Measured scan of single mutants.
Amino acid sequence: NKFNKEMRNAYWEIALLPNLNNQQKRAFIRSLYDDPSQSANLLAEAKKLNDAQA
């Protein structure tokens, strides 16, 4: 399933972002599970926040 693969990839990328705190990571990951079709958008948002907090 395409969404499962995208979701799994996004999950690990988000989990490993160095500048997000655990609460932020959990919120993004919860959103991934709520709507796997938004994986790419959620990952992009997480990366933006990660960069902003660098």
Rank of each mutant, 00 (worst) to 15 (best):
N19P: 00
F28I: 07
N22L: 13
A44W: 09
A52C: 05
N4A: 06
Q24E: 08
L16N: 13
A10E: 01
N4H: 12
L42V: 14
S31M: 08
R8Q: 12
A44Q: 11
Q38Y: 10
N1Q: 04
N4E: 15
A52R: 12
R26Y: 13
S31K: 12
D35V: 10
D51G: 08
A27S: 09
E45Y: 05
N1D: 14
A27R: 11
P36F: 09
S39H: 12
R30I: 11
N9P: 02
S39P: 10
L32C: 02
Q53T: 09
F3G: 15
E45P: 00
N50D: 07
P36Q: 04
L16M: 07
L42N: 03
N1S: 02
L17H: 10
K25D: 00
A44C: 11
N1V: 04
S39E: 01
P18M: 04
L49G: 02
Y33T: 07
Q38M: 11
A27K: 12
P18D: 08
F3M: 15
Q24H: 03
K47L: 05
A10T: 08
Q23D: 10
I29W: 10
K48P: 00
I29E: 03
N1F: 00
N19H: 08
R8Y: 15
R30A: 15
L43V: 11
N41I: 13
I14W: 00
Q53K: 12
D34P: 02
P36R: 03
L17E: 01
Y11K: 13
N19A: 04
S39A: 14
S39T: 05
N1A: 02
N22C: 09
R8P: 01
N4D: 15
N41D: 08
S37A: 14
P18N: 10
P18S: 05
K2H: 14
A27W: 11
R30T: 13
A40W: 10
R8N: 05
L20Y: 00
K47E: 03
E6Q: 06
F3P: 15
L42W: 07
A15D: 05
N21L: 09
L49D: 03
A15W: 09
F3Y: 05
D35Q: 05
S37L: 11
D51P: 01
A27E: 10
L16R: 13
N1I: 04
K47S: 05
A52L: 08
A15F: 15
K25P: 00
E6L: 05
F3I: 15
K48C: 04
D34Q: 06
A10R: 03
A15Q: 13
A46W: 01
A40P: 09
R26Q: 10
A46G: 02
N4G: 12
L49C: 06
D51K: 08
N9C: 12
K47C: 04
L32W: 02
M7L: 14
E45C: 11
F28C: 05
A27F: 12
E45D: 14
A40R: 13
I14D: 00
L43S: 10
E6Y: 02
N4V: 03
W12Q: 09
Q24Y: 03
N22E: 09
S37N: 11
N1W: 00
A54N: 09
S39W: 08
P36E: 02
A40G: 13
N19M: 09
F28E: 00
N41R: 11
A27L: 05
R8I: 14
L42A: 05
L43W: 02
E45L: 10
E6G: 02
A44I: 09
W12Y: 14
D51A: 13
Q38V: 08
E13G: 14
Y11N: 02
R30K: 14
Y33D: 01
D51Q: 06
L17D: 01
N41W: 09
N9V: 13
D34W: 04
A40E: 07
L16A: 13
I14M: 05
K47N: 07
Y33P: 01
N50L: 01
K2Y: 04
